[in-house]
Design a protein around this nucleic acid. Structure first.
Lengths: 223, 223
DNA sequence: CAGGGCATCACGAGATTACGTGACTATCCA
DNA sequence: TGGATAGTCACGTAATCTCGTGATGCCCTG
């Protein structure tokens, strides 16, 4: 990556190679033609299934792979990880009709570099490829909305329970699965002290079991 | 984007009111002028601090507030929540020089509807406002990158530990802080069965305490 | 200098959990 | 029809945890 956009690049720079994985013949042809028509891009290969592209990526890797989610056999989401493990530098951009949060979530987690919808215009697709090559993360407006919303849910502002620094240390240890004895050891204190701290923590978090404390600490990102 | 190019909109549609909160006089003036110059927008008020805008928003609320992060007194992040609680329908869009993950994370969690950087062009700012009005989440490319990366980290693909459906039920209950007795009750089974399931779960997750199981389950989003 | 928050340590009783071991049943698939 | 997997129940012991109660010393602030 890093197109090193020196001024001479328009001549010396090799074309951005893009592969397309899409089982619908008609749509695949359309996108393939678009890619080949845009200056600076070339789409030398297309595939109708994940298995095929995985096979091909063993020998040669493009700059970008446009990947459908719904495919016969292995689906697009699963394919991402496989592709990335074989060709880590290749950017995998989803191109699909699915805009549901689950799919988006899984795709991002699996290592996708962008997420487009098939409602995108030809120009948007071309722009997206340029963007991903330059380190951006192209996504459809709807996808951005979903990502934002999901993120907002996770980023719930952490309430202040008045946990003291020392207590936080204990809490962290508990979250890591340590027993009281182990904690006492690790923090060089008596087991009774651990116990006392713990009970203070429980009170502050309004829980009465260690497991619940761990759950609350993780859910609210106290640790 | 989405210029809503209905032919009649330029006359019938009421202007989108935008407030600006920015302590730097020069920058504030520039943006204010831009907003007032763009057709369809008006920027009737600007503020130099969070406290001022909070005061104003008690009586009147604009469609959009452009909010700086670094402000004297209360900072922009804290202001978001206050604004949203007073004027829930107002979209708060951050406009700042800070593009670090922490700020972005906090802003989204606090309820921001977009995140722009001051490197944005005038056109980008105007587009962003249009976008947020239409339910989009305008963000600078860099911000998108940050959000995507943070999200990817959280969306780590969940490994398959071979947890059975029944075991998953137990695990979920444990995460919710239930004791074994309580779980046995809730799932209508013997306390011994809960115990057995639990130990199977422990083995599968390679943990040996309930707290560690909860931690692992939450971290890897098994529940 | 007193009061409050924080960290430390202690004892003890009763509840809960951890974990090995063994066993019965049902279902599904080869 | 036999094996694999899942779900169920049980006993027992040692370890751990929960929680009440109490106490000492430190440091900071009013």
């Amino acid at each position: 990556m890093k197109t090193e956009s020196t001024i001479t690049s328009r001549i010396t720079e090799p074309r951005t190679t893009v592969w397309l994985v899409e089982d619908n013949n008609a749509f695949r042809s359309v996108v393939e033609r678009v890619l080949n028509d845009v200056a600076g891009f070339s789409c030398p290969q297309t595939f109708a299934s994940a298995e095929e592209v995985l096979d091909a990526v063993e020998h040669d890797a493009p700059d970008v792979i446009l990947l459908d989610v719904a495919l016969p056999g292995m689906n697009g989401i699963e394919a991402i990880g496989e592709i990335k493990s074989r060709a880590p530098k290749t950017h995998v951009v989803m191109l699909t009709v699915f805009d549901d949060q689950k799919k988006i979530y899984e795709a991002i987690g699996a290592g996708a570099s962008g997420y487009l919808l098939k409602t995108s215009s030809e120009k948007e697709i071309a722009d997206a490829i340029r963007q991903v090559i330059h380190g951006g993360v192209p996504m459809h407006e709807k996808v951005a909305r979903s990502v934002w919303d999901m993120f907002a849910e996770m980023a719930i502002p952490k309430q202040d329970y008045g946990i003291t620094p020392r207590e936080l240390e204990i809490l962290e240890a508990v979250v890591q699965g340590s027993g009281n004895k182990e904690i006492a050891d690790k923090l060089s204190m008596s087991i009774h002290t651990v116990d006392t701290h713990l009970r203070h923590i429980f009170r502050k978090l309004s829980v009465n079991t260690r497991a619940a404390a761990v759950a609350k600490a993780l859910k609210e990102r106290l640790v």
